[in-house]
Design a protein around this nucleic acid. Structure first.
Lengths: 213, 213
DNA sequence: TAGATTGTTAATCGATTAACAATC
DNA sequence: TAGATTGTTAATCGATTAACAATC
């Protein structure tokens, strides 16, 4: 096992492997070779073996990988056994949709609270969680430490809210605000979902014929 | 100007530049050097100049880049002047949220229709669009060709729906279904928003101290 | 055992960074 | 003009692919 720094590219492939392995498991496949996995995922077998070998030795020479075991290893690597607690900050359309659709439990997270500023939202129950007043977010987080804040507030208040949750001890922000939060990485981890970046990338490939990904 | 194939890495930085330039414009900045832009975005000036030079010569030696002009060039490169038409397929929580929050017009797209299978949704008006029955999607698309389909249907019907819109001539799918649609790139462009991949990536960095991005 | 397939080292390829001549 | 900063070529660095000995 190499104990070098693992590149972001490798990390971002891990959830893809996980998804694929769960799919295989669902279809009753219990062993697979890097060759077969590669051809199903559009990756080279070399890359797959390199990727896994960053974290350990999960296969068996002459046999391949046991799907269930590999799945469990990857789940562990991704921190799914930590059961991180998640709070939603901003229960607008998107925050609401995430609360109802995103099966946090299924991928190993605990949704513990939701906050909004709007009087119409405060006190309502969404997906079993009673929405609290954003004004109380700091004291609440001090009492109930959370690992991850899902930031689904309007853009103008994004940076301010991000600062608030960081100061209250939140360790990571899942950022949907279409703004770059430039925090120090030592301070807090930020993962962005920039919808418009994604749509514009699609638009580029659409407008540049012959430039398929 | 180099006319090589432009790498995906470069393409994905373009929307980031766009966002930054609009921010600068908003703050009244009208010229900027690659040096300053780099330090504000956390990129090297070299990379920025390399990136832009893939598409043309947008700067001025000894002066830098005119923000407004550069913004317009990037917008054009990304296809924002094409005014691609977008249809929503699946008006659940997420589709609904996208219809209401995503300012398609602002980034150069036209939202033209929305489809759902649920009788409670069909006929309702969301963001000025009357939701139609998914059963009629093929004939409708034949009459009203669309460039992009936003796929926000439940996972079990994702592949089927994707096939339907492709067969009806849609050229690109913005895929929110948490499933990989494995179409030939010549056939149709697919851009994925995999929420759980993103959250699990965040989770990885959280659980591996010292592994900041 | 023989065949298959891993884990890992070496080779290649591509992307980022550095350097600098061109020029505004 | 002198200083600044681009666009581009060359150098470096990192990621992917290929090859192969180890071994199940």
């Amino acid at each position: 096992m190499k104990r070098n720094r693992i590149s972001n590219n490798v990390i971002r492939r891990m959830p893809m492997y996980l998804r694929k392995l769960e799919d295989l498991l669902y279809h009753g496949v219990d062993r697979i070779s890097s060759n077969e996995l590669g051809s199903q995922m559009g990756l080279t077998p070399s890359q797959i073996r390199q990727d896994f070998s960053c974290f350990g030795e999960f296969g068996q020479q002459g046999y391949g990988y046991r799907v269930a075991e590999l799945r469990d290893q990857i789940a562990r690597i991704l921190g799914m056994n930590e059961h991180y607690s998640v709070v939603i900050v901003g229960v607008g359309n998107l925050g609401h949709a995430l609360m109802e659709n995103m099966k946090f439990e299924e991928i190993g997270f605990k949704l513990t609270a939701a906050f909004d500023t709007s009087p119409e939202k405060i006190g309502t129950v969404v997906s079993g969680i009673t929405v609290m007043d954003s004004a109380n977010i700091s004291p609440w987080l001090k009492e109930n430490p959370a690992d991850i804040a899902v930031l689904t507030v309007p853009k103008p208040v994004a940076k301010e809210m991000a600062g608030t949750v960081r100061d209250a001890g939140v360790r990571a922000i899942w950022n949907f605000t279409n703004t770059d939060l430039d925090f120090d990485k030592d301070d807090i981890q930020v993962e962005n979902i920039h919808f418009s970046d994604s749509l514009l990338t699609l638009s580029y490939y659409l407008s540049s014929p012959g430039s398929k990904k």
